[in-house]
């Protein structure tokens, strides 16, 4: 008989702060745990984790597992896989949730490869299937053209990575009670085959794409690197950031880190201005959460107009300078 029970969230934190995705996962996990009548646990890895245990309890965790080990202070695939897999084999959670982040994208498939569970990556919705009481995970497939819902009938644990900003953050309640449990065992240094030899933070000028309230994105129709200056100018006036489609990044017009879409960044600003991009599903998948989408495109039949709230059919080279100038005027006025 299945003696697995409960939900385990693999937590992430940086500089003594829980990552937003972890607070979102705790909210989601709490909801699912209540539905199943099972406990919610969280795993925190690293020597600085113990300072965050009360906070994770306040956000909904019943149990906090702490792997206090300096070898886990920086993410490394082998160490994290080893510790998380050991805990899953001891605590036997029925469901394991991770963020679809740098860490989760690498750790989840490795962890699942070791545990032999059933994993769904980049999920947009999770629920408990009423008929089977199993985790039903919905994720984009075919570049966002379709959504598939998956179940793991017998493989355990049931695993999912959840796309950041798709779930509301957990409500904080500092009166909540929970227990803190140390994770037994340390990282075996000889098991770390892949070594991190350098980690460099790149300073981004202006607003970060993921955090921007306004994003101005360009596609293949922009035609060249220098033309992106026009988009940058508009973004500056609005205090926003510049994004791009995969083809525009592939051409080398802008750095890959500005790519919005299925394989790039997923953004949900208040305003998304899509310039000279046709609206391939793979791109739209990365900006569909935006409050308002504006499309500027020469082709009146471009797919982007199907998801936009406002549209102008025309040559962006004639439209953007006037738009930028007018917005600047309205702003100063």
């Amino acid at each position: 008989m299945d003696n697995r029970k409960g939900i385990l969230v693999c937590g992430e934190f940086a500089e003594a702060k829980l990552a937003p995705i972890t607070i979102e996962l705790l909210g989601l996990g709490r909801k699912l745990a209540n539905e199943l009548g099972e406990p919610l646990s969280v795993l925190l890895m690293g020597s600085k984790a113990s300072g965050l245990t009360q906070e994770t309890i306040a956000f909904g965790a019943d149990n906090v597992y702490v792997a206090d080990d300096a070898l886990l202070d920086q993410y490394n695939s082998d160490g994290y896989t080893q510790i998380a897999a050991n805990l899953c084999q001891q605590a036997l959670p029925s469901i394991v949730l991770l963020g679809h982040t740098d860490v989760g994208m690498d750790l989840a498939p490795r962890l699942n490869a070791r545990l032999g569970g059933g994993l769904a990556m980049d999920c947009l919705a999770l629920s408990i299937d009423p008929a089977t009481q199993l985790l039903a995970s919905t994720r984009p497939v075919f570049g966002g053209n379709a959504h598939a819902t998956m179940l793991a009938k017998s493989a355990r644990p049931q695993m999912a990575t959840v796309r950041p900003k798709t779930m509301p953050p957990a409500a904080r309640d500092d009166s909540r009670q929970g227990q803190v449990l140390p994770v037994e065992g340390k990282v075996d240094p000889s098991a770390i085959k892949v070594k991190v030899v350098e980690r460099t933070k790149e300073q981004v000028e202006g607003v970060k794409l993921e955090d921007a309230e306004v994003v101005v994105s360009g596609g293949r129709g922009i035609g060249g690197a220098q033309n992106f200056a026009m988009l940058r100018e508009l973004a500056n006036v609005l205090g926003g950031a510049v994004g791009a489609t995969r083809p525009a990044c592939d051409e080398g017009w802008v750095p890959v880190r500005l790519q919005v879409g299925q394989s790039g960044k997923v953004v949900s600003p208040k305003l998304y201005i899509a310039v000279a991009l046709s609206g391939a599903m793979a791109h739209i998948a990365g900006c569909l959460g935006s409050k308002v989408i504006v499309a500027i495109n020469k082709d009146k039949d471009a797919n982007i107009f199907n998801v936009a709230h406002f549209g102008i059919v025309g040559d962006y080279k004639e439209i953007l300078p006037a738009l930028t100038a007018k917005l600047r005027e309205l702003k100063s006025g």
Partner: peptide, 12 residues
């Protein structure tokens, strides 16, 4: 390990 139980085209 996993099974697809539903496939749909998202509409907006």
């Amino acid at each position: 390990h996993t099974e697809v139980i539903g496939l749909s085209v998202p509409t907006r």
